[in-house]
Design a binder for these strands. Structure first.
Lengths: 202, 202
DNA sequence: GCTTTTACCATGCACTCGCATGAGAAAGTG
DNA sequence: CACTTTCTCATGCGAGTGCATGGTAAAAGC
């Protein structure tokens, strides 16, 4: 398109935005959402404040960017689990486990996620992004449940959509409690298995 | 004890602290935790900033006060439900419903609660208060489940402690999703009943 | 009425905030 | 080279932040 006039300095915008988003994530994880400011993010990202402002015009936009990025991050992780070769029920279990704070990386994701959860209650744009993530994960769960039913691993009489909602709500609630230190990873996994056991066929 | 010297102006401290805590709640509900500042709270509470500082020496202490107050508020609401005369299973159901954002007041409580949930991840003192609330509610749920089992309303083979954890996690997860606009009150109640139905005896 | 203690207030301070601005460095074209 | 466009930076501004301070009104015992 624009080829006959000067093509100036070219930078990978997506890469820069990713750097910014990840700096936001780190600050939220380490010091909480209240510590996120343009200056702090710039310092964390190793760039000047002006550079940050070039890619993100407002603080709200910066937060929204960070929210979208972590949403995609989580989505990619879940998709990677789904790509494994395993039985439908194991896949379902692994998918839920992927969302729980069972190791450092998942704890990191969940700390940031919970901060955005709260932030989204007050910010409409963030709420929209959040609901998209919900819908995606919920239909994903429902699909996995139906597959497990078709394979005879889960009881046929289960309402897949409702079970998906309950399962995801369970996961979210466990995340909340675990992040304030109420559960240990072992307890969390045991609770999930206890719940899944009653959904089994036969 | 200290009776022989002057006894000065006396004010109901608990009442003043309650006013401050409730002002914090309103600000969190309306504009989010990021908008909480000593000045804003003083204005919302209808007192001067100096008065607020007299009862609360630091902002963190103010937030902790507000967290403890809303914890007691929720605890009292739950206790009021438990005082009703009803069957154990209905009581359990009503208790869970009490924690869900099904009307304005419960929505208010949950918006504030979720903000503190996120805040507690980063603040240790808040986390302690949060865990206390968790433990209290969880043992309460477990007790109700055992009562329902004794009354033959819930299946005897259920692990009351695990069921309590799952039920409460479910509630918390539903709260998260509902507050960002993903569920309507009707859907929420239907999900709860769907889950409780499978716990029934017989 | 003086004193003591509580309760409250106004103000100041050093700092940070989000955002805007204008200058200029970097990179590629002609 | 000049030139255009993209990108980056330093700086300034007004507003707001948590917190400390010094002073003062109010109430009760003597």
């Amino acid at each position: 398109m624009r080829k006959w006039w000067a093509v100036p300095k070219i930078v990978d915008h997506d890469d820069r935005r990713r750097h910014i988003a990840e700096a936001v994530h780190r600050i939220i994880h380490d010091r909480g959402m209240e510590s996120v400011s343009l200056r702090e993010v710039a310092a964390e990202a190793g760039m000047s404040m002006g550079a940050v402002q070039y890619y993100v015009t407002t603080k709200n936009q910066m937060l929204l960017l960070a929210l979208e990025h972590i949403g995609m991050w989580i989505g990619n992780r879940v998709a990677a689990v789904a790509a494994r070769r395993s039985t439908p029920l194991d896949l379902l279990r692994d998918t839920v486990l992927e969302l729980l704070p069972l190791d450092d990386e998942r704890g990191y994701l969940n700390r940031v996620g919970l901060a955005f959860q709260a932030s989204s209650v007050v910010d409409d744009h963030q709420a929209v992004a959040m609901r998209m993530g919900y819908s995606h994960l919920l239909s994903f769960f429902a699909e996995q449940i139906r597959a497990a039913q078709a394979a005879g691993q889960l009881a046929a009489h289960l309402d897949a959509a409702k079970e998906a909602s309950i399962l995801y709500a369970f996961a979210q609630g466990i995340v909340n409690a675990t992040l304030v230190g109420h559960y240990t990873p072992n307890e969390v996994a045991a609770l999930l298995d206890y719940h899944l056991a009653r959904l089994r066929a036969g």
